[in-house]
Design a protein around this nucleic acid. Structure first.
Lengths: 201, 201
DNA sequence: GTCTATACCATGATAGAC
DNA sequence: GTCTATCATGGTATAGAC
């Protein structure tokens, strides 16, 4: 595409490096959360000096935001590629299953809740907000479809269902059940999906 | 009870002061979480100097652990006082409702998940662990009773039900729905209890 | 037991050489 | 753009006077 392959190659190198940085950030965000993640750790994980990190991302907040944006983009891509032949409720379950699989592999940072200072940064990040709105729209469409198919309770508003599914992707129950050592990862995921959609009763 | 009322009075004063400290700790833990809570804030909230705080509690971890122990004791007391005439499932719902009410009032720290450094401290705290085991036994009894009454799915192990209910007490869905401003607090709590026990379908 | 003042350390961010 | 070395801030914890 570019007229100067050399420049393009350099740019490619840059992208690869920055992807590696975001990989490390993602893992550390998932493992320790935003506040406990340190820039020293990220740099060490990537194998570069901390100062070099700051040449790529101007701040810790910007770095974390970039990681969250990439995560949202991957999620949107997954949702777009869902098999539309399936009942909407099965598509929703597949989204949750996909998220839980990623989480078990150590790559899913928990939702930015009100306790963390990352939240404010993300709420001021337009790239992040745009991706989030985009994902929300896709998910809301699926939820409404599932409702017209009669498999989601009518009295539950769409946003209640949406947040409930989002929250289940970072449910601490996953960690507790896994650390009990009594179940396989697949069983734990099935429990979470089942209790989310069918409840306890 | 004591032979020396004067000493007992001093001890009472101490208890009152320490209760005030734990009150402040509880609120800050709920608001910001363990890592973002600072000893300066706790001291300022109570109205004493930071050094005085350390005369009462030897460390930040010990202080947070004391707050969590008191919370567990209050929970156990509530569970003990439940109306045993009610169906077990209604008693379980009442426990969750009670916890969510406290959380809305700003007094319920989130569960210590794997991300926080508080977790290790609590796992080494025998007072905390004993209270937790005690509560777990009470709750497990209720869950088994509800199961024999046929209102909890047989295929769900007791610990899955237990953790699922615990996790719902710190579900971020509560914050998201409240901040949307579309529902009353009571509605939000009903949504959470309903989706927990009946699910989305 | 309360205070002021401070030691000590971790961490986000930067300077400046190469 | 990478590095080493450093700064500035804020936090836990403590010393020592009263």
């Amino acid at each position: 595409m570019s007229k100067e392959p050399k420049l393009s190659f350099k740019q490619q190198q840059l992208i690869v490096r920055e992807n590696a940085i975001i990989d490390a950030t993602n893992a550390l965000l998932a493992q320790k959360g935003y506040d406990l993640m340190t820039m020293d750790e990220v740099a060490a994980e990537v194998g570069i000096a901390k100062a070099s990190l700051y040449k790529h991302f101007p701040s810790k907040e910007a770095l974390a935001a970039a990681a969250m944006v990439r995560l949202l983009e991957n999620t949107i891509a997954f949702v777009r590629d869902l098999d539309t032949q399936l009942p909407a409720i099965e598509q929703l379950k597949n989204v949750l299953k996909w998220a839980l699989d990623i989480r078990i592999k150590g790559g899913l940072p928990t939702l930015p809740n009100e306790n963390t200072s990352l939240r404010d940064a993300l709420l001021n990040n337009n790239r992040y907000l745009n991706r989030l709105l985009d994902l929300n729209e896709h998910m809301a469409g699926l939820i409404e479809k599932a409702r017209t198919e009669g498999v989601i309770r009518q009295e539950l508003p769409v946003d209640v269902v949406l947040f409930t599914i989002y929250a289940r992707s970072c449910d601490p129950t996953l960690d507790y059940l896994r650390s009990s050592g009594q179940y396989t990862d697949e069983q734990v995921i099935d429990f979470l999906i089942s209790t989310c959609f069918r409840g306890l009763q």
